[in-house]
Simulated scan of single mutants.
Amino acid sequence: MVLKTIQPRLRAVDTRTVKPPPKVADAELQTPEHKAWALEVKRRAGWRCEWLDIGQRCNVAAPARLFADHIKERRDGGAPLDPKNGRCLRGRGHSLKTASERAKRMSG
């Protein structure tokens, strides 16, 4: 005996048809001046992450992927090429900081 099922009244949405916009690198971040700034920030940090978690400095160092992060983001008026406005962060810290700043910006 073969059991038949009733077809659902609502069809599932195929999310594969909705494509996110293509990711485009910010042209300013590709300039030789910005690359020199990023290199200087990473050298000054000794190629180590400067993220502070409960007063403790992160101990991740190169060859982990490190980012030169703007302390005060460019969108918020931070100086884009001032080494004092930069710190070296690993991916986790950079993502947390960026998400936090974006949330502050969007809240008001």
Rank of each mutant, 00 (worst) to 15 (best):
residue 65 R to H: 07
residue 40 E to M: 12
residue 50 E to T: 01
residue 26 D to G: 09
residue 3 L to S: 12
residue 104 K to P: 00
residue 43 R to G: 05
residue 86 G to L: 03
residue 19 K to N: 08
residue 89 L to P: 03
residue 68 A to S: 03
residue 96 L to D: 13
residue 104 K to L: 11
residue 6 I to A: 12
residue 16 R to F: 10
residue 42 K to M: 14
residue 73 E to S: 10
residue 81 L to E: 05
residue 32 P to S: 03
residue 95 S to V: 10
residue 83 P to K: 04
residue 58 C to H: 02
residue 91 G to E: 05
residue 91 G to S: 12
residue 56 Q to I: 10
residue 103 A to H: 08
residue 60 V to A: 07
residue 105 R to L: 13
residue 30 Q to I: 04
residue 21 P to E: 15
residue 58 C to K: 03
residue 39 L to R: 14
residue 14 D to F: 06
residue 27 A to K: 15
residue 39 L to W: 04
residue 108 G to F: 01
residue 17 T to S: 11
residue 79 A to I: 11
residue 94 H to K: 02
residue 12 A to W: 09
residue 5 T to S: 00
residue 99 A to G: 12
residue 45 A to K: 01
residue 70 H to D: 07
residue 45 A to M: 05
residue 101 E to W: 01
residue 66 L to T: 06
residue 60 V to G: 04
residue 105 R to H: 12
residue 17 T to C: 09
residue 53 D to W: 07
residue 50 E to L: 03
residue 1 M to E: 15
residue 62 A to Q: 05
residue 55 G to S: 05
residue 47 W to T: 02
residue 46 G to A: 11
residue 1 M to F: 13
residue 27 A to W: 12
residue 47 W to L: 11
residue 89 L to D: 01
residue 18 V to Q: 08
residue 24 V to C: 02
residue 48 R to Y: 01
residue 63 P to A: 03
residue 86 G to Y: 02
residue 15 T to G: 02
residue 95 S to P: 00
residue 108 G to K: 07
residue 49 C to Q: 04
residue 74 R to N: 02
residue 42 K to G: 00
residue 2 V to P: 13
residue 74 R to Y: 10
residue 28 E to T: 08
residue 82 D to N: 13
residue 19 K to F: 05
residue 46 G to H: 09
residue 57 R to S: 03
residue 88 C to L: 03
residue 6 I to W: 07
residue 83 P to S: 10
residue 36 A to F: 04
residue 72 K to R: 15
residue 94 H to P: 01
residue 49 C to L: 05
residue 90 R to A: 15
residue 96 L to A: 15
residue 103 A to K: 10
residue 83 P to I: 14
residue 41 V to T: 12
residue 87 R to S: 06
residue 70 H to E: 04
residue 82 D to A: 14
residue 68 A to Y: 06
residue 76 D to L: 11
residue 86 G to M: 04
